[in-house]
Design a protein around this nucleic acid. Structure first.
Lengths: 220, 220
DNA sequence: GATTGTGAAGAGCTTCACAGCT
DNA sequence: AGCTGTGAAGCTCTTCACAATC
């Protein structure tokens, strides 16, 4: 199946939602089939959109019946590049870093933290949530040795750009950025940002606006 | 200034970026003016886009000169509903909740956590990062008394929908959701989601795809 | 009868390009 | 010369609607 063409960014976002909806469906031991309408309702997406999205990753359903949950789940994980686990390096064991180390879903979804770094001398050499904290200076060596392919930047904003560059120099090919800063990195490196402040500000905006007619809003 | 028309969602997102770029500019004590091109470069946005965005909130620049940093900053905060501080209720003092309590930028940006809740009896009555943890059952009373207008959901996914509903019943008008679940809430309530797993999966996708021609990527 | 797959229409956002202002 | 503001063009994503399939 030549799943040729490019996948739109919004579609990728929704694929995550579908994956989660399917996972909770599979826990519940419900029927082994699901329609685009049902999947859409669980995820807050229109049914036609669901069909387009699933079509774009080459997942086919049966007219009159729907999609097979297990197959769809596997196809989704495969399309998103989750067939085998990703090794991840985490930089920064402040509040956010420690929360991430303890976040159980990372492991469950196929991401394994294989290296942890911090700038503060007091942290280096200690164990945090079972992970030995390395010095920044050993990053190239440790990243290479552990084979980390993704990096998480959980340091204060002033250090974010420099840390991201060091990660890339050390061989990482994708960066998840928790600092409220736009990162400038080579085009060959994927960057995704998670920005609490931006989210809160969006919320403030929408809540203010909501006095009038009330905007349509979606959770995630 | 009749800043009449609706503001596109992507624009709201970028307004946050501009705000941050201006803030670091103001710390640095640089020139008091800035052009759309400069602002765009700091934020990873095209200059024409910057001008459209700023125009949409009624912020005018001077042809040949640019925008005045201080004025622009004030106009941005005002347009985003940040003129006066928001009172926030936080539910869940697990890893994420505690990280949020310690996150210094919330206060700095005009968000004040005025109430904290947790389901676990062991937590209730204790202080976490200086905040007394209340029982869920007292939510209506405490939210009303403190005047919290926004709620943060930092509980496990199974509890997220119920917690969000209780927040809304208690009078909250906007919800920031950290649980990996789509929330179904009345249209009058604004919902913004922050989802680590979704972000990691997006990163996995883009990093896998990046083997070929290399996708254009932006940090945040 | 239920549901998929999809072309076509529609909506929304971004980029271009340039007149007009300083 | 430098920069803004913006109509028009271009692009991308979403919704509609319906023939095809089970």
């Amino acid at each position: 199946m030549p799943q040729s063409s490019r996948i739109p960014k919004p579609t990728v976002r929704r694929l995550s939602l579908y994956l989660r909806a399917l996972q909770s469906r599979m826990m519940g031991e419900g029927r082994e089939g699901i329609s685009s309408r049902e999947l859409g309702e669980s995820s807050g997406v229109a049914d036609a959109q669901v069909r387009k999205d699933l079509g774009s990753i080459g997942a086919g359903g049966q007219p009159g019946v729907g999609y097979r949950v297990q197959d769809l789940h596997d196809r989704l994980r495969s399309a998103m590049g989750l067939d085998n686990p990703w090794k991840v390096a985490l930089v920064g064991v402040g509040n956010i870093g420690r929360a991430l180390l303890a976040y159980p879903r990372f492991g469950a979804e196929g991401f394994e933290i294989v290296a942890v770094f911090d700038r503060a001398g007091a942290m280096v050499g200690r164990k945090v949530a079972g992970h030995l904290v390395h010095a920044m200076s050993s990053m190239p060596e440790v990243v290479r040795r552990t084979g980390a392919e993704l990096g998480i930047v959980a340091v204060p904003p002033e250090q974010a750009q420099a840390v991201a560059e060091r990660l890339v120099e050390s061989g990482v090919r994708g960066v998840l950025n928790f600092a409220p800063r736009s990162l400038r990195l080579p085009g060959s490196v994927a960057v995704v940002g998670v920005d609490f402040t931006e989210a809160l500000e969006r919320l403030a905006f929408e809540t203010s606006a909501g006095r009038g007619s009330g905007p349509r809003s979606r959770g995630s």
